[in-house]
Design a protein around this nucleic acid. Structure first.
Lengths: 207, 207
DNA sequence: TGTACATCAGTGAACGCGCGTTCACTGATGTAC
DNA sequence: TGTACATCAGTGAACGCGCGTTCACTGATGTAC
């Protein structure tokens, strides 16, 4: 917002870091991570090829920044959906699942970067604990279901793991296009609802 | 087996296609898909950089061949584990889930390639219906559970989707190292057992 | 069984290309006095 | 308020590199007679 459209040749963009991140996320979303090059990115953002290096040490650091942002957005969306879904334990759990799915489908660029294996090492240092927040929310919610007698008692971990894997797997399959030929899920909204609802029904034993 | 170790300078390898596929799978498994280059692959296989083009039209076609092989191995492993698990409907379903997980963890190279989004278009033409076989097995097994009154009646699709997403998500998270920091799954074998067992217990309503 | 030849699957140098990154530079902005 | 200067964030050419792919070639194998 500092300055938007001064003539070309400007030596102070003012908002380049944000623009680079946004553009990169769009490229990853539409063309995949391997199609993201800093040179092409710079061109799209309207700056020279050296400019990004004033904001990111390397391509890898730019990806790490995207991932970090992604994990924050994920947590936020899960909180938002959980609050929206209702106050009882089952609704809360369903909301968290919906939030995970909605985030993944709405921010595919972020999502693709966040779980790249080659970034995991790097990530677990920069983000103190990537995804730990959202994972903890899920676990707490499952435990609440157990405490209220909705879910089976005992070790919550198998339930948490299945819930996490379920929403993650559904997101991955949909985003990667592997569900396309399975003619079972007509739309994103139905996918989100179906997966989150079914998972909670199974966990809380509702028949 | 045709010939193994004739001196260098040989103009007939005899088994190059298979060696290239195996080597490529190993590279993808240990260094990721983006680290797979045909030039490096040729060097590892001990042939010149032009040799692979007598067996594959392009890098993409080599990947497609890996994926196709992967889907066949996946189906085979699911069948094998299902047969091993037992004859009743619940055991069969658990076996199929175990098979999916075991395949994914034992053949990470294949698994990574099979679900790459950039290959999906290409795949759905070459493999008639990639993953359709294994998906159908899962669906049939869920339907059998329904028919025998073990799973809730009605549309099987939500249950199939959750089962598929569950095993796929768990595989992906483990392989990509995203479960590493979640200190909940100590080993591969326990992961396989925990996910497959829990999914079946939830679907069949066992408490 | 021996010879002529087509075919097949190798070789290895070469191509153009795009990549991540560097660097000497430039000029706009902010600060001290 | 005006001037000198440090700093910050741009430029754009250049680097070396590895990539996918091509191509003229070579020699081993299989086949016909």
């Amino acid at each position: 917002m500092a300055r938007i459209a001064k003539k070309s040749g400007a030596y102070h963009h003012g908002d380049l870091r944000r623009v680079l991140l946004e553009t990169a996320v769009r490229v990853v979303e539409h063309e995949g991570l391997s199609a993201l090059s800093l040179q092409a990115l710079s061109k799209r953002a309207g700056v020279s090829s050296g400019a990004p290096y004033h904001h990111f040490e390397s391509r890898e650091q730019l990806l790490a920044a995207i991932a970090e942002q992604g994990f924050q957005l994920l947590t936020a969306e899960m909180k938002r959906c959980a609050a929206l879904a209702g106050r009882d334990a089952a609704s809360e759990l369903r909301g968290l699942g919906e939030g995970y799915l909605r985030f993944a489908l709405a921010h595919r660029g972020h999502f693709r970067v966040m779980f790249r294996p080659e970034l995991q090492d790097h990530l677990s240092k920069s983000c103190a604990a990537p995804g730990e927040d959202s994972f903890d929310m899920l676990r707490a919610s499952v435990q609440r279901c157990q405490a209220e007698g909705l879910a089976r008692p005992g070790d919550p971990m198998p339930l948490v793991l299945v819930a996490w894997a379920g929403v993650h797997g559904a997101s991955t399959l949909w985003i990667d296009g592997s569900l396309g030929s399975k003619r079972m899920v007509p739309s994103e909204d139905i996918l989100v609802d179906m997966v989150a609802r079914t998972l909670v029904e199974l966990i809380t034993g509702k028949r």
